[in-house]
Structure formats: structure tokens, C-alpha cells
């Protein structure tokens, strides 16, 4: 009976993995199709949709914008979030637990609600520039990922090392930079990676903040899927998937996937 149970569970796991990968594999397959319609199985294979990407200006612009916003917002969150996490971990500020919850709470709010709140606030504050509005909103989106991983890393960090560095002649900021930063680097890498992905993929917040000329990639992609779906969309999606896998492998080499996922 127990044997049967475990066999059943393994079958379900196998089924789940196939199920999860289906849409991803479909996108990959279609991107290599020779046909403009998404017939299955595809009539033949070609790289023509990848070649046509070179002319997809609005798509490439969106990729570039999303990359910038994701990289900048992740960097800003890393700096602000880490400093805040240090103060929280060391009990320098009152109500440290509440502060930690607050800094991580954007993750718990529905994305659309956040997006609407940003839209209204940007209007009320007279913030017209789409780029800076997007950037500010994405710092809020990425902050919880940084807070969670960095707080977890800091809880394992021995702060006597910072004291030791100070006693050896480094000022407090220099001590943090030379001792704390290298030791919680794995937390930075995994937190930064998830933050980057969260920003790069964000749809529900960005949809309220983009304008006709400034569109992030998910917005542009969805537009295209709704308006004129053709395998060019599949080609760019396939490149995104490959890019994500490459980033995961690089980070795995740096800090280990197990450690990354255990946050």
C-alpha cells in the first residue's frame, strides 16, 4: 500500500513536470517553425523568425527598456535594502520586526493594486516622466526580494567581524564594505537575480505606468500576442527563456542553486 502510494506520488510528479514544461516547449517549437501559423506539429523548421527579430524595432526597444529598469531598480534596492536590513538585524531601530515586514510587504499586495496606487500618486505628485515613474515603482517591486534574501544572509553573519575590522583600523562603512559585503555575496546574487526577474517580467504594475513610446517588454509582448500573434513573439520568448536559464546557470556556479532556492 505504501509502495503503491509512493509510486502514485512519483507518477504525479512526472506528470506535473511534463505539464509545467508543455507551454514552454510549445513556444520553443513554434519559434523554429517554418510556418506563420501555429499548427502542431509544425510543417517544417527554420530560423526565419529569429532573423525577423532584427527588424522588430519596438520589441528590441522594449527589451532594452526592461533591461535598464530591471538592472537599475535591482541595484537601487540592493543598496537601500541592504543598509536597512543591517539596521534591522542589529536592532538599531525600534520596531525592527515591523520595519522588516513593511519593507517586504509589496510582495504580498496584488500587483494591480500597487500599479493603480503608483499611477494615482504619480498624477497627484505631478510626476510626468514615464521612465522615472517606472523606475521608482520597480524599486518597490524588487525591494521585498532583496529584503528577504539579505535578511536571511545577515542572520547567519557574525557581526563581530565588523567590530574586528573596525578595531583593525577600518571605519564603520569601510568595515561593512570589506567584510560584510563579500561574506553575504551569495544572498546578493540570489536576491538580485530574483529581483531582476520580478522586475523584468512585471506586467500588472507596469501596465498602468507605460505610455505609447515607453513600453516594457511584458507589455509589448502581450500587445503583440493580442494584436498580431506570429512566431516572432515566440522567437523573442524563446530567447528570454534561454537567457533566464543562462542566468540561473551562472548564478548556480556562483552560489549554488540549492542555496538560492532555499530562501
Amino acid at each position: 500500500m505504501a509502495l503503491f502510494g509512493s509510486l502514485f506520488c512519483r507518477l504525479v510528479l512526472g506528470f506535473v513536470i511534463v505539464f509545467l514544461f508543455l507551454p514552454i516547449l510549445i513556444v520553443l517549437t513554434v519559434s523554429f517553425s517554418s510556418s506563420a501559423v501555429f499548427a502542431f506539429p509544425p510543417p517544417g523548421f527554420s530560423l526565419r523568425w529569429y532573423a525577423s527579430l532584427a527588424n522588430a524595432d519596438s520589441m528590441l526597444q522594449a527589451v532594452w527598456l526592461s533591461t535598464q529598469i530591471a538592472a537599475l531598480s535591482t541595484a537601487i534596492s540592493l543598496v537601500l535594502g541592504t543598509l536597512c536590513a543591517i539596521a534591522i538585524t542589529r536592532g538599531m531601530i525600534p520596531g525592527a520586526k515591523v520595519v522588516a515586514t513593511f519593507m517586504a510587504s509589496p510582495l504580498m499586495l496584488p500587483g494591480l493594486v500597487l500599479g493603480i496606487a503608483f499611477l494615482q500618486a504619480a498624477r497627484d505628485f505631478g510626476l510626468r516622466d514615464t521612465y522615472s515613474t517606472l523606475l521608482i515603482a520597480h524599486v518597490v517591486i524588487t525591494m521585498p526580494f532583496i529584503m528577504r534574501t539579505v535578511l536571511a544572509s545577515l542572520s547567519l553573519f557574525d557581526f563581530a567581524m565588523v567590530d574586528a575590522a573596525r578595531m583593525l583600523g577600518r571605519s564603520y562603512p569601510a568595515a561593512l564594505w570589506t567584510v560584510l559585503v563579500p561574506n553575504i555575496l551569495p544572498g546578493f546574487v540570489s536576491g538580485g537575480l530574483f529581483a531582476f526577474i520580478a522586475s523584468f517580467d512585471n506586467y500588472p504594475v507596469s501596465i498602468f505606468l507605460v505610455d505609447v513610446r515607453t513600453k516594457t517588454l511584458p507589455i509589448q509582448l502581450l500587445n503583440q500576442v493580442e494584436m498580431s500573434p506570429d512566431p516572432t513573439v515566440a522567437a523573442i520568448s524563446a530567447l528570454l527563456i534561454l537567457g533566464t536559464i543562462a542566468a540561473l546557470i551562472v548564478c548556480d556556479r556562483l552560489v549554488g542553486l540549492k542555496r538560492m532556492a532555499s530562501i
Binding site: I24, V30, F200, D201, P218, L221, V225, I241
Partner: peptide, 13 residues
């Protein structure tokens, strides 16, 4: 880690 838009696009296909 794969974009939701991409996965949903795959689903519509």
C-alpha cells in the same frame, strides 16, 4: 522563472 506572458502565450497556442 519563465515570464508569465510567455507561458500564457504558449498556452494559447
Amino acid at each position: 522563472t519563465v515570464s508569465i506572458v510567455v507561458k500564457t502565450f504558449g498556452l494559447t497556442i
